[in-house]
Design a protein around this nucleic acid. Structure first.
Lengths: 203, 203
DNA sequence: ATAGTATGTTTAACGGTGTTAAGTGAGAGG
DNA sequence: CCTCTCACTTAACACCGTTAAACATACTAT
């Protein structure tokens, strides 16, 4: 009867348990420093059980990143909707991106820094539907709005989007991966970057 | 007699052989994908021999990075010496930085992207005398020249230097770690970033 | 009710990793 | 000629991601 549905619910629950355990460990100690055996220990199952729910360690990671980046994409969309001045909206989208990275440094590392080494064809992160790409799309929309409103000198949407992304990513990734460097105050640095880029783009 | 000196020469030669083998493998296949055993095989010694010359795998890496970043620092110094227009000099220093990263992507990864995870206290890369820091110092000098010549609105040398670094690093690291992303033409992107930053900084 | 099957989980193992402790063997010094 | 030093190797440790095979339980069909 309903046993089939119950079973399915239980399977889904375990899948979520694995995800939760892995997220906590990955975020606390970093992907590279957490073994499948440790994740298994945390959920009190044998290591191989995880492989019944996820293809491999990278897939586990990917699932977690998608979850988290969905949040970023959503926040970006909210900002875009709630603002009508395109430059101000773009500025806030950039802030949201950097703040997000600094708030979830290990998630950020996983999708944008460590990422999929290069074992042949792990291009999941680049799929149109991936959350990382959705976030990129939101940034792109913000840039497009500015260009449509004739606020920017340069009109190559793709180039401007990628440059702004690189600016945000540069700050985020450096702050994350070199925490011991004598940085000036974080907010000052972030604002200087965003302001300088927007100023430089404005006709 | 001179045997002691000969021995010392031979030791030094082997040390260099190890370095050469490791460099070639690391650069070709990436640090993470090369094992100590493979390095040993290449020089036709047993794996443990390497540990008589280098403390561990990370130290081997560090030595290689220092070598390579010395080159970058040198090139930057040459550019600075051969130019008298400070903005143009800074532009070229930035180009040199990015070009260098794209030319030696695995070296770049090693010092600025992957680098010392966070096992307590591997702050070698941040030592004043390290070559990476020397390169940073060169960038800083370029920025200082522009500020002294009253070319920039913002006058916080450290903040401007770090922002420009972040801009260059953002582009370099994204191009390196996401080679499959549909980037616009590399040179266009690099120039757009540098031009926009310099334009945005100019009063 | 019993036999058979599908399902979820575990045990054991493979081939790898960085690293260390103990052993070997050739050449220098007495 | 013997001893000792020291560069080097062998063997091992404790891990890693992953897979094939065994197992136990719970459902199905006779």
């Amino acid at each position: 009867m309903g046993t089939k549905q119950r079973r399915e619910r239980e399977k889904e629950a375990l899948r979520q348990d694995i995800l939760d355990a892995a997220r906590e460990l990955f975020v606390k100690e970093g992907y590279e420093n957490v073994s499948m055996r440790r994740v298994a220990e945390k959920i009190e199952y044998s290591p191989t059980t995880i492989y019944l729910y996820f293809e491999d360690k990278a897939s586990l990671l990917y699932a977690i990143c998608e979850e988290t980046f969905a949040k970023l994409a959503k926040r970006m969309e909210t900002i875009a909707r709630d603002s009508d001045e395109p430059i101000e909206a773009l500025r806030q989208v950039c802030r949201a991106y950097v703040d997000f990275g600094l708030k979830y440094p290990n998630h950020y590392k996983l999708t944008f820094i460590n990422h999929p080494q290069h074992p042949q064809d792990d291009k999941r992160h680049l799929r149109e539907e991936s959350m990382g790409m959705r976030a990129y799309g939101n940034l792109r929309a913000g840039v497009e709005a500015c260009i449509s409103a004739k606020k920017f000198r340069e009109t190559n949407v793709e180039a401007v989007t990628q440059m702004i992304w690189a600016g945000g990513h540069g700050i985020t990734s450096l702050l994350i991966s070199m925490p011991d460097f004598p940085w000036v105050k974080k907010n000052e640095l972030i604002d200087l970057m965003i302001d300088t880029l927007l100023e430089g783009l404005s006709g």
